[in-house]
Amino acid sequence: MQFPESNNASISLRELQKQFWSSCRKRENGIYSMIRSKSDFSPEQRMDVYRTTARSAHVSALMDSFPVCRAILGDDYFKLLAKSYFMQTPSLSVDMNLYGESFPGHIAMLIGQRKELKELVYIVDLARLEWEYQKAYFAPNAAVFDVDRFQDKCRRLGDRAVLTLQSGISCMSSCFRVFEIWEMHRQDKLEQQSIVSNSRQYICIYNKDYQPLVEKVNAGVYELLIQIQQNKSLAEIANIFQGRHDLNAALTTAINNRWITS
């Protein structure tokens, strides 16, 4: 392929990087005239190496972060979804582990568009669980709950005392049995299970002794964690809990598991 000779000497570094990037992301061809070439390996083919490498790196990152979704969808179909996500969503962080936060949302959007996904509505919640699990893997290690510090805080602030969640902890609820599906796939047990849960399922994902853990919790504990996340004071939480859940039991569970800090 022949290209018109351009005045390459005037191309600034910034312009070159802009052209390179557009070629990588949008297959624009402005960069081709700047690339030296031998006839058997054209500028377009050379840029294809970079396009493929970048795409594979992002797709691999998603495959690592969502292994259960990948197992359910199959490698080929998962890669198709991951590629469509990559085309729409560039990585905005130097940390590759942070790539894929909006992937569950991307799947949710596709469920509305692709009939082959209609039966797999639960996979959106499963993807959310997998994302939180990955976040917990890299989260700071949980500190021990300091009872003295907590009591001191309560003495000083009374009803206005606010608890905080450990970083890396998250909770979610689902009307599907995502916990069981997730656990079954992690243990490589592929039994047929009922997908829909009889009652809403509450799940807590956290980090303990350098490892991420996933646990089913009751509605009270879930409510407590959500309210703490929203910076509600203990008094406000007590109000919300009145007659609905046992606050003491929920607090005990949360403190014993190091889900909240003092």
Partner: peptide, 14 residues
């Protein structure tokens, strides 16, 4: 990187 987007690849300089 370009424009705060990360390629996660080592791109060549002139």
């Amino acid at each position: 990187t370009w424009n705060s987007q990360n390629s996660h690849d080592l791109l060549p300089l002139p």
